[in-house]
């Protein structure tokens, strides 16, 4: 039986991979205990009120597509090849997430549509692990 390869996030600050099959991956955000605002990616001080009293929170895996574009050019260093969708997804917590979209057909994307977090392999690292990135796809 082949050894199952380990999955690692592209950046540990961004999301948590499930540790068991019953769990789901989720983005990591910060919630300000002072003013209640929520942010992604996580941060040490509140952008809204400057409070250092922040707690790490598991963010909702669904949100609404605030707006989007289809990039027809691959920028230098990008592992995502054009054409690909880029968008902002608004989560129920109020924060906005800049994200790659797994859909790149503009006809299949619509502002305000429901979107869902997906985790996909983007490359392998030096130890042969699968490096995972997050995207959003239409529900």
């Amino acid at each position: 039986m082949a050894v199952q390869r380990k999955q690692v996030p592209i950046d540990g600050r961004l999301f948590k991979l499930p540790s068991s099959p019953s769990e789901k991956a989720h983005l990591i955000g910060s919630r300000c205990r002072s003013c209640g605002e929520t942010f992604f990616p996580k941060r040490s001080y509140c952008a809204n009120c400057t409070s250092p009293d922040m707690e790490e929170v598991a963010l909702s895996t669904r949100g609404k597509l605030e707006t989007f574009t289809i990039s027809r050019a691959t920028p230098p260093g990008s592992l995502i090849q054009a054409p690909y969708g880029l968008g902002y997804v608004r989560l129920p917590e109020g924060c906005i997430v800049q994200t790659v979209l797994s859909e790149c057909d503009p006809q299949k994307l619509e502002i305000d549509m429901d979107m869902e977090l997906v985790i996909e392999k983007i490359r392998e690292d030096e130890e042969g692990n699968d490096v995972m990135a997050f995207k959003f796809k239409p529900v």
């Binding site: 950046d11 990039s71 230098p76």
Partner: peptide
Amino acid sequence: TDRYIVEMGYMVMPASYAMMARRHMH
């Protein structure tokens, strides 16, 4: 620049104007 920002293809300068334009159209 953070490696994930480069690798995930976020560095598309027209993207932010494009997304604001699309929102305006909508």
